[in-house]
Amino acid sequence: MSDPLLAVSGLTKRFRRSGTTVIAADNISLSISGGETLALAGPSGSGKSTIARLILRLIEPDAGRVDFDGGDFLALHGAALRAKRARLQMVFQDPLAALNPRATVARVLDDPLRIHGLASRGERPDRIATLLERVGLSPDLAGRHLHEISGGQRQRVAIARAIATKPSLIVLDEAVSALDVSVRGQILELLLDLQRTERIAYLFVSHDLGVVRAFAHRVILLEGGRIAEQGDARAVIDNPQSTIGKALVAAVPRLTRTQDRS
């Protein structure tokens, strides 16, 4: 068995808030293999987004270690960090907040290619067209502004931007939560297709246990910054053992259909 793609150990982050200390991540250890999806689920304030942000180094931990792609990720600086960051990408819930809403689609996709030196100026239009086709969009969309396209199309652009640097791991922080259900299924299928063909691993942060159960290989349930329960996604969600796991599953709205869907 090869080393995991991502190995996190003892990750801890405390926030001071109006005089009291909140432990948003308390001695968290986890690992993700290449091509695998690990879900982080839990109620608001359980620390799932904090852990994702710590791994991305958007915030600095108080303690702990993050090994990514064969090295100590937290020790990297400058050019070495930039190079490694190309392998670790992210897609957030709201692409209009995560990306410049006034930029064109082409500009959004040109940035990573230029910054990481992946294609010359002359090559980039072709690469952008290829990326758009890969995420199921017409290359004709390149000249449009982000605010002119639909929410589903915007999230496809965010995914195209994430895969532009050929990452081995993408953090998906509630990346399908704001989408209409008819669009959500297509985006999940696109992500699975990318996983199958490019062997991309996902850290899938979600509050939706139904989607976690269908989409993720494994799940970690969090409460108060701690791991309450973890294991195979379907095994955990079908038969939760922890108090918070049972409460989370019980709170999922049920759509009871007796009729066969034919």
Binding site: S33, E36, T37, V181, S182, R184, G185, L188, E189, L192, D208, L209, G210, V211, R213, A214, F215, A216, H217, R218, G231, D232, R234, I237, D238, V249, V252, R254, L255, R257, R261
Partner: peptide
Amino acid sequence: LLDAHIGLDAAPMIAATGHG
């Protein structure tokens, strides 16, 4: 809309793997 709903009884989208 009903078919697009992903509830706790939905069929898994991924194949079972050795990631247990």
